[in-house]
Design a binder for these strands. Sequence first.
DNA 1: CGCTAGGTTGAATACGCTCAAAGATCGTGG
DNA 2: CCACGATCTTTGAGCGTATTCAACCTAGCG
Lengths: 273, 273
Amino acid sequence: MNPSKLTVKKLKPYNPRTLPLVKKFNLLCELNETELTALAQMHENSILLNEQTTFLNQGSHSNKSYIVNRGWAYRYTDLSDGGRQIINFYLPGDIINPLAALTPKTAYSVASITPLELSEFKLEAFINPLITQSRLGLLYGWMLSRLDSIMADQTIRIGRLLAYQRTAHLLLEIFHRLEAVGQTKNNTFSMPISQHFLADTLGLSLVHMNRTLKKLRINNLVHFNADQVVLKDIIKLKKIAEYQAFDLIQTENLLAFLNNKTNPDLKFAYSAA
Amino acid sequence: MNPSKLTVKKLKPYNPRTLPLVKKFNLLCELNETELTALAQMHENSILLNEQTTFLNQGSHSNKSYIVNRGWAYRYTDLSDGGRQIINFYLPGDIINPLAALTPKTAYSVASITPLELSEFKLEAFINPLITQSRLGLLYGWMLSRLDSIMADQTIRIGRLLAYQRTAHLLLEIFHRLEAVGQTKNNTFSMPISQHFLADTLGLSLVHMNRTLKKLRINNLVHFNADQVVLKDIIKLKKIAEYQAFDLIQTENLLAFLNNKTNPDLKFAYSAA
DNA sequence: CGCTAGGTTGAATACGCTCAAAGATCGTGG
DNA sequence: CCACGATCTTTGAGCGTATTCAACCTAGCG
C-alpha cells in the first residue's frame, strides 16, 4: 500500500448513532448503551484512503477487517486478457474482510472507488464483546449472512438475467443497501462509479452497458444526472428484474427474532460460560 | 418437507476421523481428542433424504444447520420463465446454512441431488465448544470464508469466462473440494449430476453445455464415463480456466497459521472470559 | 487549448440460445 | 424378453443478445 495515499487519524468526537454500521443495526433492533459503546470502540481508529487505491492484495496476508464509514469500495479480480470482474461493492456500513482474523490469505483484491474512510479493527480484539453481548454476535452473524445473500444475488443476476434485467436488479440492490444507512432520498441516491465499473460488475462490455443504461433511461425507469440516480418506478423495476431480495427495512420481524434470541436458553449458549 | 422422504436415525458407531468434515479439518491441522469429540457431537443425529428433494424453502424459517456426510445437494432459485440458477453445490464435508441460527429467513432453496445423509445441528447448541476451543472456532470461520471464496469464484466464472473456460473452472473446483475429503483418486471423481445441473450452474443452455463438454472431451482434457469424471490434464485445464483458486491441500501453512492462533494472547481473546 | 477520462453511437462479428428431432440408457411392466 | 415411457444426451439449423472494433462527442482540468 502506498503510504502517501494513506492517512491514519483518530476520529473526532462523534455520536455513535451516526455511524453507518450502527444505523444499519439500529434499524434491526434498538441498541442499548452497552452495545453502542462496544460498536463505537470498533470505530476507534480511522483510515483515509484516496480514490482508486488498492489496499488489499489478492494472496496477501492480512488479519485486519474494515468498516466502511464513508465512500465506496469494491472487491475484484483481474484477468489475463485485461478484463476485470467485480465481485461485490462495499458501501457505508459494510464490513470488508469480516473474517480476516480466521483466514491466512486474502482471496481477492479490494480497492477504493471514491475517497474512503474506514475503521480498521481486528476481529480477535472484539470477539469477547461479540460473544458476550449476544445480540452483537447475532448482528455480526446476520451481516455475514447478508453478504452471502448479496453474493448469491450477484450469481443470479449474471447467470440467468439479461443485461436489461441485470442492470435493474443491481440498481435496486444498491438502492436498498444505501437506504438502510440513510443515504437515499426520494428514490434518489449517489452512485459514484463510471459505466466501466457497472460493466465489470455485471459481466458486460462497456458498450453494451452503455446501451442498456440508455434503454432504462428511454423507458423512463431510471434517471441519471452526474452521479445521481433516480429510480422512477421501483415497482416496475422490481418486476423487470424479478427482484425478490431480502429487503432490509421491510424485514418483517428481525427485531422480534433478535429479542427472542435473548431468552435464557440462548443467553446461556452465547454468553461465556 | 414430505415425511415419507425423510428418515431420522441415530448413526451407528463410527470413527470420527472418517467423517468428511473432520477429514477436511484434519488436513488443516491435527485435531486433538477434545476437538474430535466436539465435532463428533455435532454429527450425533442423522437425516437421510431421497434424491431430488427440496428440504429448505426460500423464505421459510429455519434455525437448523446441516453437515453433509454423504451425497450432493445444491442451493438454487427458480425464475419466472421456468429457468433456474444454481448458486452453489454442497459436497460431503460442507455445511448447509451455517449461520441459520442468526438469520430469520432462508434466502434460497436447498435440495438434494443424490440420496443425502445429513447431520442436523443447531449452531447455538455448539457455540460454546466453538468459542472455547479456539481452533474449532477458527476452523468454522475458515469454512465460512471458504464458502465466500466459492461464491466469488462462481461470480468470476459466469461473469467473465467463456463457456469453455467456465466449465473447466467448475470441474477444477469440484475436483479440489472432493480431494479435500478424500473422494478423488487418480484425478478421477464421481459427479452425480446431469448436464442440466451444470448448465443451470454455469448460466448456460443445456444445448450449449453439451457442446462445451464435447469440446473438452475432444481436446482430450476431460474424460466422462457414466458419472465418473477424469481430469486428464489438470495443468492445461487450470491454464485455460485461469484457475487461481485457493487450493485446500496445498494451503501452505494454514496449520502454522492455526497453531499461531493458539498463542496466549489469542487464547484469551477466543476463550470464554 | 489540448489532454484525458468517460460517454455515445454505428457496423460487423461471435458466442450462446431456441427450436427441433433423433439417439442412448435405464427401470418397469406386460 | 421385449416394449414402453421417462430422462438424459447429442446434433443440426437459424436466430439473437452481447462483443469487438472504431469513431466521435463531452466535460473537466492543467
